[in-house]
Design a binder for these strands. Structure first.
Length: 464
RNA sequence: GUGGUAGUAGCUCAGUUGGUUAGAGCACUGGUUUGUGGUACCAGGGGUCGCCGGUUCAAGUCCGGUUUACCACCCCA
């Protein structure tokens, strides 16, 4: 039985045909360009890692979501589901010698063994930008501005997305004022993270084990905190709480950092896409301070449930993995949801994949000359194409036109005999014979200005 | 992992109450007598109708299972 024709990519994996690959590379190119404009430096990590690297950070539960296996040497290994642990390893291993701040970025494929659905595949590419070694808000601002830049570079604007900025520290301070610390506080944050998606009764149900009969009143307070959209309101909210002196001082300091962060962000010009929104806490346990997520806006201006990007501060992760203390803040942005959004907005053009020059060749003798020129032009960086078998002139012109090339170079018997090449502009139909020795110079000029209506001096064979 | 919907050519789809060798458009290949192109015309290749089983004289069509995709949960980055 022939089953070859039935081969498909594995569930959640994608083939990239040239058109799609061109779009993907366009996204990678603009991400890279933006990250470099902020002077992030590119690094890379292995695709396959020891399983333990991931279980140490996230616990054994994560194994159910990994592509993992035992290799031929008996090692337990896994395809990376994310790059943060590998990155932390790289940073940590040289923590004391890296010049700070360390600003690194990476674009890489990540894998998760999960059932796929819209916007979430088993393999996706992710841009990650991280700043290490700077505990101050300048680093948070840098990361947020980079994330925003990585969306704006595609033509997206505040009409298309919103950065929701939150702060786990402030949440923890608030929870401390409500008598919740440690594991209890983390459990509450876990509920807050899901609050948006759950009906009110379900939220109450989850809060009751923690707050008993005060669950209702806590929820009301939490909701008023989440509804806050300005720093002044935030200050008022905390002034309204009965805080112990020490805690009040901590909160005041934190609000001062908020003020400072917003100043940085204003300077960076990203406040118009920013929204203070304590409804975001990010599920991952390792986040420690400011956190943010970028959400897509629907046509009605309301947020959709689709996050384009998420990030925040994770000051203790490097140390937790056994390396020196190293403050960190970063974000990740996936290609799947971004591609969906850009296509829905018409911001991902079809890329024309074409040669620049197409050779039209007479016979075997002419082909030798033509191929020689093709190699010269390729060495100069031109993309050059020609038929790989004998074809009639008519057919070759057809192919030249279909190829999308700007110019055809015609190597007929007459031209070659006179050491000439006829250059044809495939857009205008304008043609001009050029002496072979001047071909490169002439093409350089033609690509810039087109073929002139009259022959330029020096290109006229009669003057040789 | 749990449900809902769907699967006919590379793509978009048509296919009557089950009834001869399953069609169209686009795409692809060749040609319209080898020096001027994207159009037009002619011809061609390509499908065991997702897969397996069942009902029937007869299944693309009806039934069951399975697989894949999409959507919603669960969970998470």
């Amino acid at each position: 039985m022939l089953h070859f024709a039935m081969f498909q990519p594995l569930p959640g994996f994608r083939d990239f045909f040239p058109e799609r690959c061109a779009k993907r590379n366009h996204i990678f190119r603009l991400w890279t360009q933006t990250a470099r404009s902020f002077n992030f430096q590119q690094y890379d990590i292995p695709t396959l890692e020891p399983l333990e690297l991931f279980t140490q950070k996230s616990g054994e539960e994560i194994v159910g979501q990994l592509f993992n296996f035992t290799d031929k040497g008996g090692r337990e290994v896994a395809l990376r589901p994310e790059l943060t642990p590998s990155l932390a390893r790289m940073i940590g291993s040289q923590a004391n010698s890296l010049k700070r701040p360390v600003k690194w970025f990476n674009i890489a494929e990540n894998f998760r063994y999960e059932k796929q659905q819209k916007g979430r595949l088993r393999s996706h590419y992710q841009l990650n930008c991280d700043v290490f070694g700077e505990p101050g808000v300048g680093a948070d601002a840098e990361v947020i501005a980079t994330a925003v830049g990585c969306l704006q570079v595609f033509g997206l604007s505040g009409a298309d997305f919103v950065v929701r900025l939150s702060d786990r520290n402030l949440w923890l301070h608030f929870l401390e004022s409500q008598g919740k610390t440690g594991d209890d506080a983390m459990a509450v944050l876990g509920v807050v993270d899901k609050m948006e998606r759950l009906p009110r009764e379900a939220v109450i149900e989850k809060l009751e084990p923690l707050f008993g009969n005060k669950a209702e009143s806590f929820l009301q307070q939490a909701q008023s905190l989440i509804a806050i959209r300005s720093l002044d309101e935030l200050k008022q909210f905390f002034e309204g709480l009965e805080l112990a002196t020490e805690l009040k001082q901590t909160v005041d300091e934190r609000l001062g950092q908020w003020s400072s962060l917003l100043d940085w962000l204003e300077g960076l010009g990203v406040t118009d896409v920013l929204r203070i929104d304590l409804g975001i806490v990010r599920g991952l346990a390792y986040y420690t301070g400011f956190v943010f997520e970028v959400f897509e806006k629907g046509d009605d201006g309301q947020l959709t449930g689709r996050a384009l990007c998420g990030g925040g501060r994770y000051d203790h992760l490097v140390k937790k993995l056994g390396y020196p203390d190293m403050p960190a803040v970063g974000f990740g942005m996936g290609d799947v949801t971004l591609t969906d959004l850009l296509e829905s907005k018409g911001l991902l053009p079809d890329f024309i994949i074409a040669p620049e020059i197409y050779l039209v060749v007479g016979g075997d003798h002419e082909r030798k000359i033509a191929l020689h020129d093709a190699q010269r032009l390729r060495a100069l960086g031109y993309s050059v194409e020609y038929p790989l078998k004998n074809q009639s002139f008519g057919k070759q012109f057809k192919l030249a036109g279909q190829s999308g090339a700007r110019f055809a170079l015609i190597y007929g018997e007459e031209e070659v005999k006179q050491h000439q090449v006829k250059v044809r502009d495939l857009q205008t139909g304008q043609e001009m014979p050029i002496m072979s020795v001047y071909l490169v110079d002439a093409l350089g000029q033609f690509f810039a200005e087109g073929i002139p209506a009259h022959e330029p001096e020096g290109a006229d064979p009669s003057k040789l």
